[in-house]
């Protein structure tokens, strides 16, 4: 390739013309190839089966365990519900903030019921930011089935409570009889049961503070006994979640207030 003098000059001309011609040949050949682009609104680009688009929720499977909410790195899932007896959830909101969501699918894998998925829908152009906060629930509140289940569960519980009471009574009577019989104290038995109660109480009392945040919860009027019951499992999760959970709760409250 080393040239000198006039040969450089001629060589440059030759190279320039030749390489231009080669390049033009390539572009010319491409003119007769089929375009590879899609005419967007008419031909929609096919998406793969694993495509990570807009989420969808199988609400009847969801147990409101908040695992997805916890897994999301940007806290864009917001779940508000009320747990009724019989693990029935009264749904208020399961919303996804697509302003923040980055479609990482991290929310989908930890779901124990495998009920939140990323779908094939894409194209999120909206006129308002608020329109990008999408509620994924298919129903809100309680369905007839749920009412039924709550009733059943309550009856069941009452029945159980009654049974328990009866048992206790019987046991107490027995104990009394035994105590009368023997001077040995049965304290060793009753002791633990008494200590267990206070232990569970603080857990129950913790969520007492966020309780009023759940709107309409009290108004709908499950008895106070019920609310205490229903808060229990939530309280347990609260503990696991730590400070992060607190944040989402706070936000939820604000947004709820705004609406």
């Amino acid at each position: 390739m080393k040239r000198d003098g006039a040969m450089v000059w001629l060589g440059n001309i030759k190279d320039a013309l030749w390489s231009t011609m080669v390049g033009m040949g390539i572009t010319f050949r491409h003119m007769f190839k089929k375009p590879v682009t899609y005419q967007y609104p008419e031909d929609v680009v096919p998406v793969a089966t694993r495509y990570r688009g807009m989420h969808f929720l199988e609400q009847d499977k969801c147990i409101a365990c908040r695992a997805c909410e916890k897994a999301c790195p940007v806290d864009c899932i917001e779940i508000r519900f009320l747990r009724h007896p019989g693990s029935v959830n009264e749904w208020f909101e399961f919303s996804l903030d697509y302003n923040k969501c980055m479609f990482c699918e991290l929310c989908c894998s930890p779901c124990p019921e495998d009920c939140i998925h990323e779908g094939k829908e894409f194209g999120f152009a909206r006129y308002e930011r608020s329109e990008l906060v999408v509620d994924l629930t298919t129903w809100k509140g309680l369905r007839d089935v749920d009412h039924q289940r709550i009733k059943e569960a309550e009856e069941e519980k009452k029945r159980k409570a009654a049974e328990m009471a009866a048992k206790k009574k019987a046991a107490a009577a027995k104990k009394a009889a035994e105590a009368k019989k023997t001077a040995e104290s049965p304290e060793a038995k009753s002791g633990p049961s008494e200590t267990a109660k206070p232990a569970s109480d603080p857990e129950g009392s913790k969520p007492q503070t966020p309780k009023p945040k759940i709107p309409k919860g009290d108004a709908k009027g499950p008895s106070s006994k019920k609310t205490a019951e229903e808060q229990k499992p939530q309280g347990n999760q609260n503990k696991g979640k730590g400070s992060e959970k607190g944040k989402t709760k706070g936000k939820g409250k604000k947004r709820g207030g705004g609406k």
């Binding site: 572009t27 491409h30 003119m31 007769f32 190839k33 089929k34 375009p35 590879v36 682009t37 005419q39």
Partner: peptide, 13 residues
């Protein structure tokens, strides 16, 4: 149009 076809696009249509 020509540039579109050269680049395997449709160009204005």
């Amino acid at each position: 149009r020509v540039s579109g076809r050269m680049q395997q696009r449709w160009g204005p249509n």
